[in-house]
Amino acid sequence: MTATPTPITRRRRFLDNRAVRRFMNNPLALIGLFMVVGLTAACFLGPLLLPFDELYIDLRARFAPPLTGAHIFGTDPLGRDIAARLFHAGQVSMAVGFLAMAISTVIGTVIGLVAGFRGGWTGTILMRLVDAFLSFPSVFLLLTLAAFIKPSPAMITLIIAVTSWMEVARIVDTEVKSVREREFIAAARMLGLSNSWIMFREILPNVLGPIVVAATLTVARSILMEAYISFLGYGIQPPLPSWGNMLNSAQQYLAAAPWLAIVPGVAITVAVTGFNFIGDGLRDALDVRSHNG
């Protein structure tokens, strides 16, 4: 943080330290951190250790069950190594999750900031927009979008982001409203600082905690969403693997090759659980009021 040292930043640094301590004392949060770090490491380092290419098709070796030779997780219907695919898919799915989180957090934060800071008509309209997006099941919206737009990883990421920024917007809006009237903002106003300066330099750092928590949970949610739409066939297209599309054809081979469904499913669950643990740990650590229980 390069801002001039004001009382606010000093107070934040103090909070940070306490937050880190609290986070480190939360076993679930640590387990989550461990799960996510472990999985990420596996996804990026794993492919280097495996003797297989995730795209190499070997039809003679199709449907090999786990632990067949060097195929620790077995092979898929085209004889590709599932472990290799799983790790590459992990890179794709997590990239989608993170990018969708980044985009949706930016959208949500900006909208929330503007709505909360400006208030009045602008605020009302923006927050009604949030309600509109929240008022139908996002899977419906997600599928409608995915079904009619040429699917590519970038597009899927964007679609997920577009359907998941509302939570953040709402949180930021509420937080900003509570911060807005505080003394230091009035002080900033009196100093004649511009609105955007006040919004981004003064208010934003103060609502960073809730945003970080929401963002962590959004990663978890985005990974799940990618899995949902890819499972339903509207998501990331082969040959690029993603955890979701590895599950897409698994239903068909459920009886004959259940590992096709089990392996990526476990990976998704581990990743999402990990992010949820971290998110919850952060919530406690940063002392963010719990929204919706």
Partner: peptide, 13 residues
């Protein structure tokens, strides 16, 4: 058509 598994396999092959 996306979602046709056998065709997708043939395509990749």
């Amino acid at each position: 058509t996306s979602g046709n598994h056998l065709r997708e396999q043939a395509q990749q092959f």
